[in-house]
Design a protein around this nucleic acid. Sequence first.
DNA 1: AATGAATGAGCATTCATTCAT
DNA 2: AATGAATGAATGCTCATTCAT
Lengths: 200, 200, 200, 200
Amino acid sequence: MARRAWSGVGQGRQELFERKRQVVLRTAARIFSERGFYQTTLADVADELHVSKPALYHYFKSKDEILLEIQRAAIAQMTDAAPDSGNGRERLTAFVRRYVAMITDEFGTCLIMTGVLPLEPKNRQSVRAGSKNVEKIVRDILRQGVQDGSIAPCDPKIAAMLFFGALNWIPYWYRASGELGTEQLAERAVDFVMTGLRPR
Amino acid sequence: MARRAWSGVGQGRQELFERKRQVVLRTAARIFSERGFYQTTLADVADELHVSKPALYHYFKSKDEILLEIQRAAIAQMTDAAPDSGNGRERLTAFVRRYVAMITDEFGTCLIMTGVLPLEPKNRQSVRAGSKNVEKIVRDILRQGVQDGSIAPCDPKIAAMLFFGALNWIPYWYRASGELGTEQLAERAVDFVMTGLRPR
Amino acid sequence: MARRAWSGVGQGRQELFERKRQVVLRTAARIFSERGFYQTTLADVADELHVSKPALYHYFKSKDEILLEIQRAAIAQMTDAAPDSGNGRERLTAFVRRYVAMITDEFGTCLIMTGVLPLEPKNRQSVRAGSKNVEKIVRDILRQGVQDGSIAPCDPKIAAMLFFGALNWIPYWYRASGELGTEQLAERAVDFVMTGLRPR
Amino acid sequence: MARRAWSGVGQGRQELFERKRQVVLRTAARIFSERGFYQTTLADVADELHVSKPALYHYFKSKDEILLEIQRAAIAQMTDAAPDSGNGRERLTAFVRRYVAMITDEFGTCLIMTGVLPLEPKNRQSVRAGSKNVEKIVRDILRQGVQDGSIAPCDPKIAAMLFFGALNWIPYWYRASGELGTEQLAERAVDFVMTGLRPR
DNA sequence: AATGAATGAGCATTCATTCAT
DNA sequence: AATGAATGAATGCTCATTCAT
């Protein structure tokens, strides 16, 4: 019993190392989101992986680094979510669809639910800079949309944050295991942020 | 030097005790939100109040209880935010205005930013029940609005959560000290959740 | 059972604190010298004092700080050992007598036997500077003696270090509990460093 | 790049093994003396040798054994330092010259600076016995010298330890890389232990 | 009511050592 | 012979909480 959780993960040399690293990251992200970063000990993570605690230190040099890499991965995904063609509304709609997919995976969920406060100040700044960048992308889309008339006139800063709120809150209530699929959720989100609740 | 932070808070007997309790609560809520619950030690809270650590135990029996009471207070405020007259849209609009006011104060902010994970399971359930109740209030308003035609047809569950997301995320980015007042913020929020981003 | 090792140490407020601190220091110095710094855990020190481990942290903020204060105390004693009247030989003789007394107490012994390597670089420099100072005192005495003719012509640097060697090695072999008293030891040391082993 | 530090050390079969062992020993001795035994990890030693950590276990079965062999080598050298012809003074002088040479090499320096405390009790006794033996050699020389009149009357036990102190302290301050050569140092040491500091 | 002192429980991290290849 | 991977054992330190005054 207690087979290595990553037995048979792959067989490249360097590559195997990298895959195990990813497994650690996903697992840790999931547990951090469920229990909270501080309520999760490295022993918890190790146990879940059927691995000893020091083994984790082969892959990461500290608990903080694990969280940092999770959040970096989340930010990277989100940054790539920016679509580049179409008018403002079209781009925003595409962004929502991709963003919902990412924020419901382990990394995105952990970024939102754990937040950056546990990180060391330096790393915190790093992740925050990434988030700011994603926000800027959306602000720019909004500005474009306002100009091309596909989006209602608004203060892009405020609107972007209310927009992000609707999406970022998803990890707090949505369970992928339920009946609502991620794509359908994305459609509801598109509807909500585009047309609001008032009937047309 | 180092005068008690609550010197002159009041002078009733029982009442004085209660007021000091509130001061502890507000202060703790603020620090918890800023640094995070686990990064905040009771020594930090005591220092901020110019009081000794054990003194806090005169007012609360544990760190957990402090957080619990903060969150209960937040929930109580929010529950009271429910307006009872008007059609769905009117009631929802009124709710948003009150909710924004509450979520930007120390208690509301702490409820959102600290979350319920740090609480003991029993207390966590208690707060969660309160939150569910607030959500139910909104769902009911939505249902009413859909029926009376003042709100667009939608799945009330999903819509309510997207709606709450837009509002709950506010503490993560809004600073009351900035140029945007709370009331103006509330108006933007009303616009956003009611009409969305697409031009009419 | 397990009475506090420092029960009844004193009763001033501030003063009591300081005395307990000294007790910790002496005890730690003794154990460090016996077992070595790294072989001694804070639990060992705490046990010896019939106190809990965290209690030590009321008095010192780290294991390193304990060692630092021990060594600072030793250096302070030694610095004060410098006599100021007489010719070179007389001053050196007086220095030996005082130095032997100090190097055989807990602090002096710990300074020699533990060394400064365990200290953090910054603190290490600090103690080293103190040691250098003591060495300088002796070099100056030697120079004076060479000039006034009471000490044989020699290179003061080398001579001082050989001189210190003879004395500093004492903790490695001398036990105060044996038949040879500290004063007698000091006389032998005076003889040795003054006249050497060859008959006159 | 990063060629094995011992590439080309030799080519005999068994002999090669033995030479590599010696390289490990010298290197470890040097690092132990510089940083301290406990501050030196086997990874440090392996890195310095451009070898993997487990590789060291081909040559030694534990870190303790490495230190033990270093110290045994030092003791062996010292034991051989005893000269056998001449009167007491002559023999002692010769001993000093040889002893200084040994105590300034890697093994001798490590024996002095690391001490025997890190060793397992059994090994510690073994090395201590060797040291005692070297001390006995000197005591015997002193006794002979006192009898033949070439050394001043003294308590051989105390005199021997003060004598050793002057010499053993050398590693703490002497750097072979400086301007003072080992032979010159030995002459100063001979002068000091023979005639002391007082002018004749 | 209030505090300095003390503690139990816990946790991240390190490192010598072993194992599988 | 040699190494990357893995681990058991240990330790310094933190902090919520309690106790004695």
